[in-house]
């Protein structure tokens, strides 16, 4: 497991990729600073909906994760180096799990730091809110990561499909069709924020903390299982 994990960390840690991640992750922090300096006071509900919900959980987190997760397997498939791993006498889960862990290890610090700084500044150093937002955002990172790692294994167009998913599904349909929200990673990440700190997103309807946590585990485990199945059945290039 260690070999695949450290191999993937090195594959994902290209200088340009990390620079772009840093810029993306810095946007919510920058917006928060500008909001705090603005003469027009923004309501807490507006801030939560716009910056935490739409921007952080619905755009920045999935974009950062997509850029990293889609190439965790995607580069191996494209470069035809995946056979180095699949022809090893190790169970397939010892290939898929470290790939997922490496993705979270690279994307997590960017998104987690962004969430922590944004929340800490916006809620004036209030730790329960900061911890709730950071933890639930990191859980969102893990959910997006498992989905996009699988996507990188099944399609060579993973980045394009992932972008469509982020824009159309997370950004559009789940925002307007209430029943579809239950199938949105953003929605469950926000439910976790509310569950961990009930003062956040107070005005909205949420599933309970337990349900959101179970859904998070199901999403991570489900896409991991799909990735394992794909590794077993695919023709390795």
């Amino acid at each position: 497991m260690r070999s695949v994990y450290f191999l993937t960390i090195r594959q994902l840690s290209g200088r340009w990729r990390l620079a772009i991640m840093a810029v993306l992750a810095g946007l919510p922090v920058l917006i928060t600073v500008l909001m705090l300096r603005s003469a027009d006071a923004t309501s807490v509900a507006d801030f939560e909906s716009t910056v935490l919900g739409t921007m952080l959980a619905g755009s920045i987190a999935p974009l950062v994760v997509l850029a990293i997760a889609a190439v965790a397997f995607g580069n191996e498939v494209e470069d035809r180096t995946l056979a180095n791993l699949t022809l090893s006498p190790v169970p397939r889960w010892q290939i898929a799990v470290p790939k997922l862990l490496a993705t979270v290890s690279v994307a997590g610090p960017f998104v987690g730091a962004s969430a922590m700084l944004t929340a800490h500044m916006a809620f004036l150093g209030e730790w329960p809110a900061t911890i709730a937002i950071t933890v639930s955002t990191l859980v969102g990172v893990a959910m997006y990561a498992s989905m996009f790692v699988w996507l990188g294994l099944v399609s060579t167009q993973a980045i394009g499909i992932g972008l469509l998913y982020i824009v159309l599904w997370e950004g559009f349909f789940t925002g307007y069709v209430s029943g579809v929200r239950l199938l949105s990673i953003r929605y469950h990440a926000i439910a976790l924020m509310h569950g961990l700190d009930p003062r956040r997103f107070e005005a909205d309807q949420h599933v309970s903390l337990v349900v959101a946590a179970v859904v998070a585990l199901a999403v991570i485990g489900g896409f991991l299982a799909l990735a394992l199945r794909r590794l077993r059945t695919m023709d390795v290039p």
Partner: peptide
């Protein structure tokens, strides 16, 4: 395999 791509950073 016939493919000669390697992990160039290693």
């Amino acid at each position: 395999s016939e493919h000669e791509t390697v992990y160039g950073f290693m």
